[in-house]
Design a binder for these strands. Structure first.
Length: 647
RNA sequence: GCCCUCGUAGCUCAAUGGCAGAGCACCUCACUUGUAAUGAGGGGGUUACCGGUUCAAGUCCGGUCGAGGGCUCCA
C-alpha cells in the first residue's frame, strides 16, 4: 500500500497513492478554483506529483499568491503573443506585480496603441485555445546553446545568474520561456485581458543599460472582474488631485513659474492654512515648540550635517554672495539643530521638541514631478525631538499616538506600520555603527510592543543614519503611500557635537528623532483631495456654506444670514447672480460645498433657512440660529462621515 | 535624466494638407426665478514655442519647452 498522507490548511488530512498529481487531489477535495498549491510552504504547479507526505494549501485567484501565478502565466501569454506578431522580439523579464503583470521586450522600436490592441486580441485567441502549460527541465548547457542561437541575450544573461542545472522552462503551444514557475495548468482560465500601457524600462533597472519596451497588463478569470477593475481605474482618474485641483480652483501649475512649483489658489490656500493650524495646535498641546527658520543657509551647514556629501545631487546649486555660498535648504533638521545648540540644556529639560512647517527645496529630476504629489518646493510638517537615550521609547510612543490622533481627525484609514531597518549586509548604504543600530532597532520594537501595534519589518529600507517607522496609507487605487515617518538618529548629534548636561554635571550626547506626521502640505493636500474626491469634510472645506437667494429682493436677507455664520467663524459666500435656483444649486454642488441655504420670501419673513446638504439633499427648514449652532458644532467635531457627493 | 504618448479659447473636446469650430465658463440684456443647467446677444485663438517641407500646415518633418504613463531616484 504505497500511499502519501496530505494535510490540508483546514486541518483535515487524506491519503492518496504516491505520485498522485496535485490537480487530482484538488478535484477530489472540491478545490476546483485552485490555480496552484503551496506544498510544505513551496509554491508548485498542479501537475506536480505527490511523492511523500506533505502539507498542502490551495492557491486560488482569491489569494495574493494565487493571483501572482495567474498574472505570471498571463505575462507568458503576452510574451507568446508578442513573439508571434513580432518574431524578431527578444524577451527579457515578465513578472506578476501587485496589480497585474508586465513583460519587457527588445523589438528595436516602441509599441504603439494599435500594437497593444493587436497583441491583446492575439492573447485572447491564444487563451481561448486552452493550451496545456507544462514544465520541462532543460540541461543548462542546452539552454545556453539555444539562447545563443536565437540571439536571446537577455535570457542568456539571466541564466548566468541562475545556478540550477537543469533549469526549468515552461512550454505552451510551441512557445517556451525559462521560468521558475509555478504556472497555471493551462491558458484557459485567463478569460479577460486588458493591456494597459507601454513604457520604456531599463534592462535590470539600470539606467546605464538598454532601454527595453515594457507592456503592462492585467487579467482576470472573468470579464466582470476586469470591468470592475477598469471602473476602479476610472474612479481614480475622476478623483485625480490634478483634475479636482483645477476644477475646484485649489491650486495651479503654470509654466512661467517653473516645473514642480505649484501655486496655491485662494481655496486651496484656505485648506492649507487649516491643515497648518490644525497640526500646529495639536503639536503645541503636546509640548512641541514651533520656530521659524530661513529657507536659505550657508552650504557649510550641510557640510557639517553630511548632507552635502550624501545628497548634493538633489540640492539646488549654491548661490555665491559676499564671499559666502548659500543653498536653498533641502531639509530643516540642521536649522533646528542650531536652535537646540543655541544654549545649553540640562537633562531635566529634555526632551526638547522643535517643530516648524518649514519650506524646503529639492532638485527632483524632471521625470518624477507630478501635480502636488511630487514637487520641488514643499512645506514639511517637520519636528526634531532631542532627548536622552532613556527617553527614546517614550518619545517614540508619543509620536505614534500623535499620528493616530491626526489620522482620526483627517479620516485616514487602512494604514499599517513598517519598521524600516538597515540591511546588515549592505556596508555602504548605512552609517557604520553596529551597536547604535542594534540599540535603536531594539527600542523601536519595544515601543511598538508597548503600543500593541502590528508591523512589518523592512530590512534595507532605513535611512542612512538610523532606523525608522513608516506609516503606510493606501491611496484611492489601493497602493500604499508613506505619509508619516519617525526616524531615530544617533548620527547628526554626533556630527554637530550636541550635548546636554547630565546629573553628574558632565556633558552627554542626546538622541534625535526626526518625525513628520502629516507629510508635506502639498502631498497631504493631494492625498486628501483624492480621498474625499474634493468633497472635504465640513471643517476642512474652503467654502463651508453658500447662501442662495431665490430672487434679487432676497439678497439682503442672504447677506444677513452670511454675517451670522461668518461671525461664528464659518466660511460663507452668497450667490447673488441672476440665475435660477436650480442653476445655483448645481454650481454649488459641482464645487462640493457642504451646505447650501436657499432663502426666499418665506425664509426672510420667518427668519429661517432652507437647508440643502451636498450629500443628503434637501433637509427642510431651520431657524437661522438653530442652523448656525448645528453647523458650528459639526465643524468643531471634525466629523468626516458624510458621503462623497455624486458627480 | 531616459523611453513612449500628448499639447487647439479659462475648462472639456471637434476640424481629409484647403476660411479654426462647439458646449460649458466669462461679459451684456431680458426674465425675478424654490432644490443639479432660463433665453438672446457678445468678447475671447500667433492651434505651446522655433525652424523646415508644401501653392497651402492645427494637421507632415526636425528641434525646444511643458504635461501625462513608466524607468531610475526619494538621504
Amino acid at each position: 500500500m504505497d500511499q502519501v498522507t496530505v494535510r490540508f490548511a483546514d486541518g483535515s488530512s487524506a491519503a492518496y497513492p504516491r505520485g498522485t498529481q496535485l490537480a487530482a487531489v484538488a478535484r477530489d477535495r472540491g478545490a476546483g478554483d485552485a490555480l496552484a498549491a503551496r506544498v510544505d510552504g513551496v509554491e508548485r504547479d498542479l501537475a506536480t506529483p505527490l511523492e511523500r507526505d506533505a502539507a498542502v494549501e490551495w492557491l486560488s485567484f482569491a489569494d495574493p499568491a494565487g493571483r501572482a501565478v495567474f498574472w505570471h502565466s498571463s505575462a507568458h501569454l503576452l510574451a507568446q503573443a508578442v513573439r508571434e506578431l513580432f518574431p524578431q522580439a527578444k524577451l527579457a523579464i515578465g513578472p506578476a506585480i501587485d496589480d497585474g503583470f508586465y513583460y519587457d521586450f527588445d523589438i528595436g522600436r516602441p509599441f504603439g496603441p494599435e500594437d497593444l490592441a493587436r497583441i491583446e486580441a492575439r492573447m485572447l485567441e491564444l487563451a481561448a485555445r486552452d493550451e496545456r502549460i507544462e514544465r520541462i527541465a532543460v540541461p543548462r548547457a542546452e539552454a545556453q546553446r539555444a539562447f545563443a542561437a536565437a540571439g536571446e541575450r537577455y535570457k542568456a544573461e539571466l541564466l548566468e545568474g541562475i545556478a540550477d542545472d537543469p533549469v526549468s522552462f515552461y512550454r505552451q503551444d510551441g512557445f517556451q520561456d525559462m521560468c521558475r514557475g509555478p504556472h497555471l495548468a493551462s491558458t484557459g482560465p485567463i478569460r479577460a485581458i486588458k493591456l494597459l500601457s507601454t513604457s520604456g524600462a531599463y534592462w535590470r533597472g539600470d539606467e546605464r543599460r538598454e532601454m527595453l519596451q515594457r507592456i503592462y497588463g492585467i487579467s482576470f478569470p472573468a470579464q466582470a472582474a476586469l470591468d470592475a477593475h477598469l471602473a476602479r481605474i476610472e474612479e481614480a482618474k475622476r478623483r485625480d488631485h490634478r483634475k479636482v485641483g483645477r476644477d475646484l480652483e485649489l491650486f495651479a501649475s503654470v509654466e512661467e513659474v517653473g516645473q514642480g512649483l505649484p501655486l496655491w489658489l485662494p481655496r486651496g490656500a484656505t485648506v492649507r492654512r487649516l491643515l497648518d493650524r490644525y497640526i500646529t495646535d495639536l503639536e503645541g498641546s503636546l509640548g512641541y515648540e514651533h520656530v521659524h527658520t530661513p529657507d536659505l543657509a550657508s552650504v557649510e551647514l550641510y557640510k557639517i550635517s553630511g548632507h552635502w556629501d550624501h545628497y548634493r545631487d538633489n540640492m539646488y546649486p549654491p548661490m555665491r554672495v559676499d564671499g559666502e555660498e548659500l543653498v536653498l535648504r533641502p531639509m530643516n533638521c540642521p536649522h533646528h539643530i542650531m536652535i537646540y545648540k543655541h544654549r545649553q540644556h540640562s537633562y531635566r529639560e529634555l526632551p526638547v521638541r522643535i517643530a516648524e512647517l518649514g519650506t524646503m527645496y529639492r532638485y527632483e529630476r524632471s521625470g518624477v514631478l507630478s501635480g502636488l504629489a511630487r514637487v520641488r518646493a514643499m512645506t514639511l510638517n517637520d519636528a526634531h525631538i532631542f532627548c536622552r537615550p532613556d527617553q527614546l521609547t517614550d518619545e517614540f510612543v508619543g509620536v505614534v499616538r500623535l499620528i493616530q490622533q491626526a489620522y482620526r481627525d483627517l479620516g485616514l484609514r487602512g494604514f499599517w506600520y513598517r519598521l524600516s531597518l538597515r540591511d546588515p549586509r549592505d556596508r555602504t548604504k548605512f552609517v557604520q555603527n553596529d551597536a547604535m543600530w542594534s540599540l535603536a532597532e531594539a527600542q523601536l520594537r519595544e515601543a511598538m510592543r508597548r503600543l500593541e501595534l502590528d508591523y512589518e519589518e523592512a530590512p534595507g529600507e532605513a535611512s542612512f543614519y538610523g532606523p525608522k517607522l513608516d506609516v503606510q496609507v493606501p491611496n484611492v487605487l489601493g497602493k500604499d503611500e508613506t505619509i508619516s515617518t519617525v526616524q531615530i538618529d544617533f548620527y547628526l548629534p554626533e556630527r554637530f557635537g550636541l550635548e546636554y548636561i547630565g546629573e553628574d554635571s558632565q556633558p552627554r550626547r542626546p538622541v534625535m528623532i526626526h518625525r513628520g506626521v502629516i507629510s508635506t502640505l502639498e502631498r497631504m493636500m493631494a492625498f486628501l483631495i483624492e480621498q474625499y474626491a474634493g468633497a472635504f469634510p465640513l471643517w476642512l472645506a474652503p467654502e463651508q456654506v453658500r447662501v442662495l437667494p431665490i430672487a434679487d429682493r432676497h439678497v439682503g436677507y442672504a447677506h444677513r444670514v452670511r454675517s451670522e455664520l461668518a461671525a461664528r467663524g464659518m466660511r460663507v459666500e452668497v450667490d447673488a447672480s441672476s440665475e435660477r435656483t436650480g442653476h445655483k444649486i448645481r454650481a454649488a454642488q459641482l464645487m462640493k460645498i457642504p451646505y447650501m441655504l436657499v432663502v426666499g420670501d418665506r425664509e426672510a419673513r420667518e427668519g429661517t433657512v432652507s437647508v440643502r446638504s451636498r450629500s443628503r439633499g434637501d433637509e427642510g427648514s431651520y431657524a437661522l440660529a438653530a442652523f448656525v449652532a448645528r453647523v458650528v458644532d459639526e465643524a468643531a467635531s471634525r466629523r468626516h462621515d458624510d458621503a462623497p457627493s455624486a458627480p
